[in-house]
């Protein structure tokens, strides 16, 4: 496979709170290749959003602190860049779309001027050129009558329209990487589908790599090329979307798949749930952090924290006892 456009290695992000230092992200590795969609999935609090925000160093520091790891983009480590250097990448080479279109736009500026701001920072276009570009972008994301919408304020638009504006803003400089942090979670189901379709078509058009953060496996199935499953601040399994859905190996991934409504065998079978809760970040258990909820856990799991080990060309799993039933034998640990 080609060189990744963006790779995250050993990322560790902590929050200092009154209760102590919480490692929200604790050794995450991700690779994002040109043109692909990588979905990062996991439960609430597993570190998905923190990972996404750490890439562009958008977390308020303090309380957050990126303690270790590197984010390699275009041959340089984003975590070591100066703020001025990083700003040249933010919004231009790597752009973000956030979860809450209701609050992610500034209420006192027109949506056009907010898109224009990105162009003003990153391009040499004239005022007129930027104006045309903004209207073009609004058309591109499916907003009718762009010249009129330019002057609209965020409160005059619906949630779906605002998310389209956010996408137009993110795409304004044709970034190589788009990070979308739960872009559809706050929207109606029908609007969700439209936004996902829009993202997919724009991705193809601009040949962007998309890092999509979500907790919705339905969204993953529709959009992902590859999937990374996060649990308690770590990647526990990565693979192509076919592998993850067809032959999940990590017991946690298996549990997630079973927990999807409509996937249980039998018509009115009760919804499957993974027993227990995510471990408290303050005192992570020794060994594997999933072992207390895992049907396969044994003595080894209590002693050793499993490393993320490559499994074939495109996948990896961090487990002492992965499900290997559907796989050719020979590997595993």
């Amino acid at each position: 496979m080609s060189e990744p456009v963006l790779s995250v290695r050993g990322l560790r992000t902590t929050f200092s709170t009154d209760a102590g230092v919480l490692p929200a992200v604790d050794g995450v590795d991700l690779e994002l290749h040109a043109g692909e969609t990588l979905c990062v999935v996991g439960e609430s609090g597993c570190g998905k959003s923190v990972t996404a925000l750490s890439i562009l160093r958008l977390l308020p520091e303090p309380p957050a602190s990126i303690e270790a790891g590197e984010v390699i983009f275009d041959g340089c480590n984003l975590l070591e860049l100066s703020n001025a250097e990083l700003r040249k990448i933010r919004g231009s080479r790597i752009a973000m779309v956030f979860q809450e279109p209701m609050t992610s736009l500034n209420p006192v500026f027109s949506v056009g001027s907010q898109i224009d701001e990105a162009l003003k920072i990153h391009t040499d276009l004239t005022r007129q050129g930027r104006r045309e570009r903004v209207e073009e972008l609004l058309t591109l994301v499916g907003i009718p009558a762009p010249a009129e919408r330019y002057r609209d304020y965020p409160h005059q638009l619906s949630g779906g329209m605002r998310q389209r504006v956010m996408i137009a803003m993110a795409l304004s400089c044709e970034p190589a990487v788009l990070i979308a942090d739960e872009p559809t979670t706050a929207l109606d189901v029908t609007i969700q589908a439209q936004i996902l379709e829009l993202l997919a078509s724009l991705q193809e058009r601009f040949h962007m790599a998309v890092l999509l953060i979500t907790h919705d496996l339905g969204v993953v199935a529709e959009t992902a090329n590859r999937v990374a499953v996060l649990y308690a601040g770590r990647v526990v399994e990565t693979g192509t979307v076919y592998e993850i859905f067809g032959a999940p190996r990590h017991p946690y991934t298996v549990g997630l798949m079973k927990a999807m409504p409509g996937r249980s065998v039998g018509h009115r079978a009760p919804l499957h749930v993974i027993p227990g809760v995510v471990p408290d970040l303050r005192d992570r258990p020794e060994g594997c952090s999933f072992r207390e909820r895992c049907p396969r856990a044994d003595a080894v799991c209590a002693e050793m924290d499993p490393e993320l080990e490559a499994w074939g060309a495109e996948s990896a799993v961090a487990c002492h006892h992965p499900y290997v039933d559907e796989r050719p034998a020979g590997e595993g640990g």
Binding site: L56, L58, P60, R90, M96, F98, S104, M166, M169
Partner: peptide, 16 residues
């Protein structure tokens, strides 16, 4: 300063 749109502005590359 803690609102979402401030983060959006930073994500766009707006200076501090």
């Amino acid at each position: 300063a803690g609102r979402d749109f401030v983060r959006t502005a930073r994500a766009k590359g707006v200076s501090e």
